[in-house]
Each structure stands twice: as structure tokens, then as C-alpha cells.
């Protein structure tokens, strides 16, 4: 198993000038992408529109074909929007890299298991949907040593990461909230890409 923060650190090392879209645990302000990102002006946290961060990333990848787009998705988020796998596959943007942080549960709502937890195989689902490549890692060093090659290869690629759950039981209004909202981030990134 890999910790949420370690996964983000490894991805950040290979990020380059990629646009990074995050949701749920991967975008957690205490143990997620905002802690490690070295270029927040190219990050878009997607909190609303549950499950649709990967759809947003698809649009971004199609609009910016010359730049890598990385989506840090959750397993609970992906099962809310499984059709995204076929929609992404249909357009098949070669610059889209779809990471799934699979912790088996809805960590932000107290840790309830996702449907088919322990049975579902996201790597096989992506392959079956027609992604160009699909991978799975449960070891940090293994991920670190392969990530450069994966990001140099053609997408769309799904990279499923077995993540240690970090459960939050604090009511939402009492939690630390991300400093960058989706609204401010989309305006900033839009401006940066237009510039």
C-alpha cells in the first residue's frame, strides 16, 4: 500500500509542466496534492460535480493536446462516473494520464466501503474500455521507477494506486478547506493557458 502523500510526492517529481486536476483525498489540503505541488498555477481542484473531475480533465486534454494533463481521481469518484472510461476512450487523448487513488472507501465521509470494494479491478476496467494503457501499483518504489516511462508513453493511461485510507470523521464545515477554490483555479489556469 502507498500513502496518499507519498503518491502525490512521486507524481510531482515527474509532473513537469503538466496540468493537474485533483479531487477528494488526492486533493486533500493536509495530506494531498496541495502539500507537494510546485506549480499551483497549473492545478485545478475539482470539489463540486462529484465524480466529474475526470470528465473535466478530458475536456482540458482535448483543448490542450500539446501538454500533459494528469487527473488524480478517487475510486469512489470513479464509480460515480464509470461512463467516463468509455467517454475518454472514445476520444483517446494521448496526453491524458488518469491516476486512481484506490483506498476502497469513501474516506471523506467516514470510511464507508465503495460498492464492490475488494472485487472491482479498475486496471482491467480501463483496459476493457479501450484505454491505450493501464497499470496498477501497490509499492511506492515500483511506482517511482516506472512513472517516467508511463508518462512518456501514449495515453489515455489509467494508473491505479493502492492507497492506505486516511479517514476523515470531522464534519465538513470544521475541516481545513483548500485555499484555492475550483472557481478561482479555473480562472487562473484559463488565464495562464491563454497567456
Amino acid at each position: 500500500m502507498i500513502s496518499n502523500l507519498d503518491a502525490c510526492r512521486v507524481i510531482e517529481k515527474s509532473r513537469g509542466d503538466a496540468l493537474v486536476v485533483t479531487t477528494m483525498g488526492a486533493g486533500n489540503p493536509r495530506f494531498g496534492w496541495p502539500v507537494v505541488s510546485q506549480n499551483q498555477s497549473l492545478d485545478v481542484p475539482v470539489g463540486g460535480a462529484m465524480g466529474k473531475a475526470s470528465s473535466f480533465a478530458l475536456g482540458l486534454a482535448l483543448a490542450q493536446p500539446g501538454r500533459r494533463v494528469i487527473i488524480l481521481d478517487g475510486d469512489g469518484s470513479l464509480v460515480m462516473n464509470l461512463g467516463t472510461l468509455t467517454t475518454i476512450s472514445e476520444r483517446s487523448p494521448s496526453n491524458l494520464y488518469h491516476f486512481v487513488f484506490e483506498n476502497g472507501c469513501y474516506a471523506v465521509t467516514g470510511g464507508q466501503p465503495i460498492p464492490a470494494e475488494g472485487k472491482v479491478n479498475f486496471k482491467e476496467m480501463a483496459s476493457g474500455a479501450g484505454y491505450a494503457a493501464a497499470y496498477e501499483f501497490d509499492d511506492l518504489e515500483d511506482l517511482a521507477s516506472n512513472l517516467g516511462r508511463i508518462l512518456d508513453g501514449d495515453g489515455p493511461a489509467l494508473i491505479n494506486l493502492k492507497i492506505t485510507p486516511e479517514i476523515e470523521n470531522v464534519p465538513i464545515h470544521l475541516r481545513e478547506r483548500p485555499k484555492r477554490t475550483t472557481r478561482s483555479a479555473v480562472q487562473e489556469v484559463r488565464k495562464a493557458l491563454a497567456g
Binding site: G59, A63, V189, R190
Partner: peptide
């Protein structure tokens, strides 16, 4: 999915 994909396209110019 449509509004989310459209949002990404819009942000991308």
C-alpha cells in the same frame, strides 16, 4: 459529463 467536459474545454481556451 457534458458540463464537466465543456468546463475543461473552456478552461483550455
Amino acid at each position: 459529463e457534458t458540463m464537466a467536459i465543456a468546463a475543461g474545454l473552456w478552461v483550455g481556451g
